[in-house]
Design a protein around this nucleic acid. Sequence first.
DNA 1: GTCTATATGTTGATAGAC
DNA 2: GTCTATCAACATATAGAC
Lengths: 182, 182
Amino acid sequence: MLDAAVDAFAERGFGGTSTRDVAVRAGRSTAAVYVHYESKEALLYAISLEGHMDALDCLRCAYASSEEPAARVHGMVLAFSDWHMENAKLARVVQYELHALSEEHRADIVSRRRRFQRLMVGALRDGVRAGQFNVEDVNGTARALLSLCIDLVRWFDPARGGDPWAIAQLNADLALRMVGEV
Amino acid sequence: MLDAAVDAFAERGFGGTSTRDVAVRAGRSTAAVYVHYESKEALLYAISLEGHMDALDCLRCAYASSEEPAARVHGMVLAFSDWHMENAKLARVVQYELHALSEEHRADIVSRRRRFQRLMVGALRDGVRAGQFNVEDVNGTARALLSLCIDLVRWFDPARGGDPWAIAQLNADLALRMVGEV
DNA sequence: GTCTATATGTTGATAGAC
DNA sequence: GTCTATCAACATATAGAC
């Protein structure tokens, strides 16, 4: 059911998807949707929540798996880029359908999103403090590094080929240049 | 009429917008929409076409206004970033609503989009040939530079403040690092 | 070119049988 | 938990008067 909704929302957007679209993809009736979810918006929230938690786990894990600043930033951009390509449909919904959430749900998700930025800012500060990075605008640069990863969902299409790992490697290498690694 | 549609599509997405939404914003009846545009999709195509032409003009102009490779790439990222913030609503529709176009219209737009990539690839090759840039993957790096600019429309909100020019400058400075400027 | 009125299908969501 | 059947509201688009 969730998978069916992810596919549909990713393909046509939340507004362009009907509960019937979702039900048909899941091989169920429209009524069956409402047994599990209170509304179409609640379905989107469930997807968005799961996606944000999974992506944050991914980025936290990468942060924790190295103490050396350059290796850490490299690993974070590598993992976060890869996540967006390996979970292309989910990531698309996560990144582009926030506007359709209710006010309360959106506030919850927005506060979760700040953690991505904080984590990346932390990684940059570590490198600056250690004298290994040359970054003037830590917040802006962190934002740009996340942008590089997130924007992958706009154009990357698993069906059209392209090697996710090679793309993630390129992003990670560019990231080290962006932080002015010494 | 077009402005009203840009506002609506940017806020709620194409699928989440009704022709009534557009008509009300424009201070007209729904019937009036169909005097000027054959369908809701035709309205989206008109917006998308105008937006892509304007953005391409912007990037071409930046390309042409310098011969020196580093200044050229800096200027391109500066101008393209700025365009996405100064035309935030239009840019949002341009970048995120392609999926809602008819097959013919989408094909037309997609072929126009390739010109952005070609222009940036050209700028990078110039710098590599001149021995001023150190870029292994020209296509991938050009894609990343455009990503940095385009992803601004996902989060930049003119209403919430933030200095577009400072953000554009940061992106342009990061771009020079990304191309390994000597 | 604009409107009011309307045709025709689709929407999110519910009722009630099994 | 699943279905079929259905509701009221809304969708896109058109007809025809001014």
